[in-house]
Amino acid sequence: MKVVVCVKQIPDPADPGALDPETKTLRRDVKLILDESDSYGVEMALQLVDAAGEGTVHLISMVPNDEVSGLRTALAMGADSATLISDEALAGSDALGTARVLAAAATRAEPDLVLAATESSDGYTGVVPAQVAELMGLPSVTFAKEIAVEGGTATVRRQTEAGADLVECPLPAVVSVTAGVVEPRYPSFRGIMQAKNKPVDQLNVADLGIAAEQVGWAGAGQEITEISEAPERAAGEVVVDEGDAHERIVAFLDELKVI
């Protein structure tokens, strides 16, 4: 079984950088790391291959520069190989431009299953996985809580507003994985050493047969008209608990007439 996992390398959320005043987009000149959301997809892929008793996990990621540190983290977890689509033309890509690149790269890998996070931690549009599926002409199940694969069919427990749906989906398919449903393994020292020698195939947009104007700024078809400061919320009263702070909370709830 060949599982492709789409992963994103993002600025460390603890130090997210700032909007570039010129281009009005997130500056990406900071160090990039593996989006934590993607560690669940990588872990899920590793577990599915383990359960199947055979198979490989291949990563796909795109960046406007040649950053690979996030990919190395996922390779150290146990993924076998990676494709990095690295091209300056990718800067400013919207969700659809991103999906075009990921779908083209995933198609080349001829996967049985494509996994992704439900949404990235920085862009959080939550539409890329289903766009990838549509571009590949595949079925998709988004917001998966559990996945089992048997006999060319994925059985997926999908999060819904009411609870969950049990969805059966023939492979190949695209499935997006919600955070927290598996416990991502920490890379072992051995894994980290091995990751340095795992193959990372580097491609540009033209290699995928995609025109530069379909991605990046040119392909995005949208523009930022204004950036403004949001009104700040004023901080209120702060009480240090001396054993009776709960009384202050009760009084506050009383004032609000909610109890």
Binding site: L96, Y124, V127, A130, E161, G221, Q222
Partner: peptide
Amino acid sequence: GTTYDGRDVAARLSVKLGAGVLSN
């Protein structure tokens, strides 16, 4: 709406119409 199904329909429609999505 930014819901489970809303995002699915919006995503697939955007590909079919070649139209971008602005989210959140």
